[in-house]
């Protein structure tokens, strides 16, 4: 079972997917239309590229930088959050315990993934 398929069935997860760092390929499972998943992939890739650039610049310009490499990011809205690690994204409900549980699971599975899963 792929990482995103496992994520998609976790409690509180609305949908999960993976996107290619280059090109337009993506796969997903969950409560999103195909077009929404395509858009989510484009958005998540753009933010991932941006955080990589920011951590590069951050560490090139400060001593003792704790973000030598950006491994992921989270955006929190009023009802939903987006959690991304490596090239895997998931949309989660803002219910107690969900974000922490999903993040912990993603960290265990994906923290060592330097490029793509």
């Amino acid at each position: 079972m792929s990482v995103y398929s496992e994520l998609a069935v976790m409690e509180g997860v609305i949908a999960a997917g993976e996107y290619a760092y280059r090109g337009d390929r993506y796969h997903f499972k969950g409560q999103l239309s195909d077009e929404m998943a395509r858009m989510a992939s484009i958005m998540c890739r753009a933010t991932t590229m941006s955080t990589h650039m920011q951590s590069d610049i951050l560490c090139a310009n400060s001593d003792n930088c704790p973000f030598e490499e950006a491994h992921g990011w989270i955006v929190r809205g009023p009802q939903f959050s987006v959690c991304v690690m490596a090239n895997i994204f998931c949309f989660v409900q803002n219910e107690p315990g969900v974000l922490n549980r999903v993040f912990r699971w993603m960290r265990e599975r994906l923290m060592d993934a330097h490029e793509m899963v």
Partner: peptide
């Protein structure tokens, strides 16, 4: 460093432009 910055910035601008078009 300038080359690396310009490359990273180019990719970031590409990402934002893709989203704007989308």
């Amino acid at each position: 460093r300038l080359a690396r910055f310009a490359h990273d910035y180019k990719r970031m601008v590409q990402g934002n432009t893709d989203q704007f078009s989308m």
